[in-house]
Each structure stands twice: as structure tokens, then as C-alpha cells.
Amino acid sequence: MSGKSPPYSTTDSGVGIAKHPIEKCRRMKGHHMNLWQEYKRPTSVAEAVQALASAPGPALPIAGGTDLILDLRQGNHLPIHTLIDLTFIPEMSALEMRGDSLYIGAAVPVSRVARDPLVGAHAQALTEAANLIAGPQVRNTATLGGNVAHALPAADGTIALTALDAIAEVAGASGTRKMPFTSLFLGPGKSAIDKTKEIIVGFHIPVKTSEVSETSEVLRASSCFKRIMRPQGVALPILNCAVWLERSGEVVNDIHIAIGPGGPVPFRTTDAESALRGQPLTDAALTRALDALLAQAKFRDSARRASADYRRHIVVGLFKDVLETAWKRAEQD
């Protein structure tokens, strides 16, 4: 019969599924197929870069670590000796206004990005993307740094940051440098950052507060992110889109449009942006922008997710939807 521990007040426990006394754990030490050997918790960026350089074996930084630990466990990653945890570094967990930019540390959990009022006020596309990355528990550990470091051309956070024209701050042995966001990517899954030597410290998102233009119209900036999924298989969007724009009355003063996957790296459709920049947002302008988008984007077939044809078909509605939502958000009060 079931061994009952303290009695409970609401219901009884009368099922007997035969059990056996549980013995004390006796974990063996020594010859393990361990996921890692050493785990470092530096408290400054410099210390982290130094730890990477001085590790006795292959070393990698770990922020959220969800993907990395899975890759190690599933044998999709070469064995790692040292993991360097970036979440104990205050600079990398900061989220604050710094001058004209919103600074988001690369190790800030995605859930905090999703909830933060500064992000909501200045980078709504990122709020929306952050709310869609993975699931709630994973968002509590996953980071924007990790999302970007994977260099996937359709990662939600990456596409939002692309449209927001973020600047990445990268630390290496020779100090830190700032890189335009799109320069972080070399190809699908190929980052310009050498993870064994360098660390993405954080992102600076330029913030434009309302100002009065030459034509004495108020300029208002806004952004939006949406995506289309399919319910089977890998939980990656089959298409996502982020738009940042600056509206001056009925005119698109400035605009950034990012589509994922629209090519081997996170894709800005500069031709569509040109078709809209300085133009009133009319049906004709929208059609020109769409034509430019379809001409410039390189949609591809991805097995079991979506064909290029399908992406070309659904991008039309998605782009219009995202653009119109951002446009309305930038409306005068």
C-alpha cells in the first residue's frame, strides 16, 4: 500500500501503486560524459573576455543557454570544457536609456524585454517579438544576445532589432567596438562574432522622440512586429516582418522594413523603404513598395516549413498588416 506522509486536509490518498523504499543517492564521481567541465561566473565584461582567452580547453560564453545546452546534450556541438556565464555581469543585464539610445544588455532575459515599459514606449516591435520568442519559461532565461548570436535569418528578436536599426556593442581582447546590426551576420547560422573570443555586450536602439519637422508637422516614430507560423514541426516562424517608421502627418518621413527569412542573413528591404520614404502612404505607394520588396527579397524553399512561392504569397498580407499597424501607432493624438 502507498506509504502516506503527512495527512492532507482536503482529500485522502487511497490508491496503492506498489512502491519501494527510496535509497539515498550515491552519485559516482570521476569518469563522466559531462556537458561541461568548468563553469565560470565573471562579474565584468573584461573578466569574461579574459576567461574565454585563458580557458584550458574549448570555451564558450553562455547567456540563457537553452539552445547551447540542448546542442551539447544532443551532440550537435563539439564538446566544451568551460562555460562562461554572462548573467552575473551587471553591464550585460542593464536595460536603460543612455542618451538618445535605449540600451539593452545582451544577457537581459527576453521576458524582461517583453515587459519593460521603456521597450514598450520606444521599440514596440521588439516588445512584440520578445513576447513571441519560444515559450514563457524559456523567455525567462533566453536572451536577445543569444537570439542574435545564432545568426538565424528569421529569429524574431533579430528581425525586430534589424528594423530598429540597432547598434551592437561587442567586446574582445582589444576592447569593445560598436557594429551596425546587420554587419553581425555572415550567412545562415554564421555570425561575424567569434564566440570563442568575443562577446556581444548589448544593443543600442536609437530613439527618436517626437520633434517638429521643417513643415511644422510633428514627427512620430513607431514600430510593429508580426509573424506567421505553422503548427507542425520546428517552432520557427515561416515568415516574420518588422517595420519601424517615422510619420509626418500623412507622409512616411523615414522607414525600415525587415523580413525574415528574406535572404541568407536578416534582411532589410531597402528598395521598398526607398519607395515609401518621403511619400504619402497611398495605395499606389504601397503597391510600389510591395513590388520592390518582392523583387529584392530572396525567398527560399525550406523543407517541411514553407515553399518560396508560399512565402511570396503571404508576405503581401503580412507586410501590409505590419505597416498599417505601425502607421496607425504613429498617428497624431
Binding site: G65, T66, L70, D85
Partner: peptide
């Protein structure tokens, strides 16, 4: 709430 199966114990 966190997924403890991918959470390094040392963290």
C-alpha cells in the same frame, strides 16, 4: 518560472 532541465546548476 524556469525550465530546470536546461538551467545550469551553478547559475
Amino acid at each position: 518560472p524556469m525550465m530546470s532541465c536546461v538551467y545550469p546548476a551553478e547559475r
